[in-house]
């Protein structure tokens, strides 16, 4: 009896270890994580307009608000800082940065941005130190986001409550820039 109990306890402890290891390993092995989906559709350093609801599985990012228009830019800081710029209509909009694992690392909405347009520089602390040595004048009007994550993606959301704004929003998102040469 004691013997069977010991084996049962051993089995449950093994179950605990397997439980923890497999839960922690899911993000590393999930084939459909956001980065892989986005890498399939979005080229580096350019905003691509995407739809919230589409029947094409490859370009589907779940849980995007269907009442917003969206654009995604996949970036890498290996080659330098990335500057994101967009001029959008006077409606709610927001931008969020995600690291490679799809975790949100920064977000801001139109009211919180000091300027009317989006003008944001994403870089590593080292890259910022280099720019600060000889700062261009326009640097003070740019939203500066420091990150240690070398790769990631940005999502721009623009509220489209009234279809009359659709052409203007599409034009704004299509013209949105996400580029390595910042100055």
């Amino acid at each position: 009896m004691i013997r069977a109990l010991l084996f049962a306890v051993g089995g449950v402890m093994l179950a605990g270890i397997i439980h923890i290891v497999s839960v922690l390993q899911v993000p590393a092995f999930a084939p459909q994580d956001t980065w892989s989906r986005i890498a399939d559709i979005a080229p580096l350093d350019r905003f691509l307009r995407i739809r919230a609801d589409t029947d094409d599985d490859a370009v589907h990012i779940p849980m995007l608000d269907p009442m917003m228009e969206h654009a995604v830019c996949r970036y890498s800081l290996e080659a330098g800082a990335v500057r994101m710029r967009a001029t959008l209509p006077d409606t709610y909009w927001s931008v969020a940065l995600y690291n490679r694992r799809g975790e949100n690392i920064f977000s801001i909405n139109d009211r919180a941005v000091a300027t009317k347009d989006l003008d944001m520089l994403v870089l590593t602390p080292d890259q910022l130190a280099i720019i600060r040595e000889n700062p261009p004048e326009e640097l003070q009007d740019i939203l500066i986001i420091e990150t240690d994550d070398m790769q990631g993606f940005a999502l721009l959301h623009v509220f489209n409550g009234d279809t009359t704004l659709t052409p203007e929003i599409h034009a704004g998102l299509d013209a949105a820039r996400c580029e390595i040469r910042p100055f």
Partner: peptide, 17 residues
């Protein structure tokens, strides 16, 4: 984290809503 990785969804940032 595991659930998000499986569905591939993205969360709204706290600065968004």
């Amino acid at each position: 984290a595991a659930a998000f990785a499986r569905t591939g969804e993205v969360a709204l940032g706290s600065g968004e809503g």
